[in-house]
């Protein structure tokens, strides 16, 4: 048993070494607020960067971060063409609340529901908030956990880097 486990680990790491350093988005299907299926691996923004944030209605720093992002989002879109998907990891107790909260707070992002934490697990998110930046070719190029006041500035710098590369 132990040997097999070790072997499995080795196999994983070995293949991992060969693997590209920039990873793709996982093949996980979530629902949007209208109940439509959205396959994360197939997300695209016409070669422009994509931001995926993980949040929950019960997570205070997440709400803060998204309020802050919402204030600057339109400017970012104008300047870089970035698209932001806010993935709610609320479980069934609060999924019904996600839409009213999002609308009530007036957020402009695309919201996805990760009710079963499938994407959270696949992308190794331990605690929300957690932010990923995806470049125009669909590779994850940067990630960040937690939120402190003004943290959106760092994200914006990273978005600019990715957006410039494209030009």
């Amino acid at each position: 048993m132990k040997k097999l486990t070790a072997l499995l680990l080795l196999a994983l790491f070995a293949t991992g070494l060969y693997a590209q350093s920039k990873t793709d988005l996982p093949n996980v299907t979530l629902k949007d607020l209208n109940g439509k299926d959205v396959n994360i691996a197939k997300l695209s923004n016409n070669g422009k960067p994509i931001v995926i944030t993980f949040w929950a209605t019960w997570c205070a720093p997440c709400i803060k971060e998204h309020n802050a992002l919402n204030d600057v989002y339109q400017d970012w879109v104008d300047e870089t063409g970035v698209k932001l998907y806010a993935v709610s990891i609320d479980d069934s107790r609060s999924t019904a609340k996600v839409k009213p909260v999002v609308e009530g707070k007036g957020w402009d992002f695309d919201i996805l529901l990760d009710v079963n934490s499938d994407l959270k697990r696949a992308m190794n998110v331990s605690n929300p908030p957690h932010t990923f930046l995806i470049d125009g070719s669909g590779k994850i190029v940067w990630q960040h956990t937690g939120y402190v006041e003004g943290g959106e500035e760092e994200l914006y710098e990273e978005i600019l880097k990715v957006a410039k590369k494209k030009k």
Binding site: L12, T15, Y18, A19, Q20
Partner: peptide
């Protein structure tokens, strides 16, 4: 895993590990 790994180079190129 080993079988796949040994057989195809392209497989390795598509391999991704995160954790």
């Amino acid at each position: 895993l080993i079988g796949f790994g040994a057989s195809a180079q392209s497989f390795l190129e598509n391999s991704q590990v995160n954790g």
